[in-house]
Nucleic acid binder design. Structure first.
Lengths: 114, 114
DNA sequence: AAAATCACTTTCCTTTAGTAAACTGCTATA
DNA sequence: TATAGCAGTTTACTAAAGGAAAGTGATTTT
């Protein structure tokens, strides 16, 4: 039979999950959001709080997170000019995801070190 | 001053989140888990339920998910041999993450199409 | 005057991810 | 006999991610 579908549809879940992954997927995005979330505001502070990240990766991810309005880049005039990164209200909506990943990561680590 | 730390530590959250990401990061792992979760068991059924995935990506991701005990590959003898993929009890622990990502994705899509 | 801080950028390079398309060896069906 | 289904593999390629190290142009501290 032509057009016969034997598989079960899961697009109602797969589609939104992929939409979310398009924004937060990657090795560094969530770590940066978490770091800014606890109060780190300066480029070097954020960088030093995340072991292993390079300034190049930092710069790239910060720009993408800004584009998605998950962090805000604020330029304060003065000598020298001060640049700070801030958590946005929209980033609050990520808290359940971060919490779920944190819990799972803790449990998974326990599991594999047994 | 040497060894001066001005940044705030966030390792207690960043570390477990990265441990979780090491397992489920990527474009296809969660979609495959979701597809198996709704009941798709055969290679081609899983593949057809996820738009855009190639058999090569499928094979690679299925192996990794099996290694992490998030799905199980079952060979049933007979003519022909039948191969099925099944959801494991451990995969249940991912439900909160999938739910959180799904909710966020739905909301995000609403937001950006306004 | 020299060295350090800050927020990056640039260059070079390797690794990983991902796509398309063809192919394999088997069985089942028309 | 020819075609289709199943569960992948193979080849060949491009693109994106990621890492190391050095540099930049400003100020600021020693």
């Amino acid at each position: 039979m032509a057009g016969n579908k034997s598989y079960l549809s899961c697009l109602d879940t797969v589609k939104p999950v992929r939409d979310a992954l398009d924004v937060i997927n990657g090795k560094w995005k969530l770590p940066i959001i978490i770091s800014v979330g606890v109060g780190n505001e300066r480029f070097t502070d954020i960088q030093e709080s995340i072991p292993g990240i390079s300034p190049k990766a930092m710069a790239k991810e910060l720009k993408e997170l800004e584009k998605h309005r998950l962090i805000e880049r604020i330029v304060t005039d003065g000598y020298p000019v001060k640049i700070t990164y801030k958590w946005t209200p929209y980033a609050n909506t990520l808290r359940p995801i971060i919490e779920a990943l944190k819990e799972w990561g803790i449990n998974h680590q326990k599991k594999i070190t047994q």
